[in-house]
Amino acid sequence: MEEKADGTRIIRRTAWSDFAAGLKPGPERYAERLTDPAVDIDGDIAMVWSPYVFTIDGRVAHCGTDHFDMVRDAGRWKILNITWSKRTTGCPAQ
């Protein structure tokens, strides 16, 4: 969920193929830092919840919370779903 400066919220649903197609290399350096992740596991399912800060060329671009749904398949953890919030105000400094 993304919150615009005027307080309105946008919810988008994107297929994996569309999301991956939108990732194009360029001259910018992107980095996402997860802070204080919480991990809950029950058998072969898990959830990871963590605040994050996303930077472009070392400058904070936005922040929010990431949520990953995970499943263990043949002994390996795989991401089933990713949900995140996004805001450009109130982000912690790098």
Rank of each mutant, 00 (worst) to 15 (best):
R13F: 15
T14N: 00
T14R: 00
T14K: 00
T14S: 02
W16F: 12
W16V: 13
S17Y: 02
S17D: 14
S17K: 14
D18T: 14
D18M: 03
F19H: 08
A21D: 13
A21W: 00
G22T: 13
G22M: 09
K24Q: 08
K24C: 01
P25N: 03
P25K: 11
P25T: 11
G26H: 07
E28L: 11
E28G: 05
Y30F: 14
A31G: 15
A31Y: 06
R33P: 00
R33G: 04
T35D: 06
D36M: 09
A38W: 02
D40A: 11
I41M: 03
D42H: 14
G43M: 13
G43H: 10
D44Y: 07
D44N: 13
D44L: 08
I45D: 01
A46K: 03
M47G: 03
V48L: 12
W49Y: 12
S50H: 01
P51A: 11
P51W: 03
Y52Q: 07
V53I: 14
R59M: 05
R59Q: 13
A61C: 00
C63Y: 04
G64S: 02
T65S: 02
D66P: 01
H67L: 12
M70T: 06
R72C: 02
A74F: 07
A74C: 08
R76V: 13
R76Y: 12
W77T: 06
I79V: 15
L80Y: 09
N81T: 14
I82N: 02
T83E: 08
T83M: 09
T83K: 05
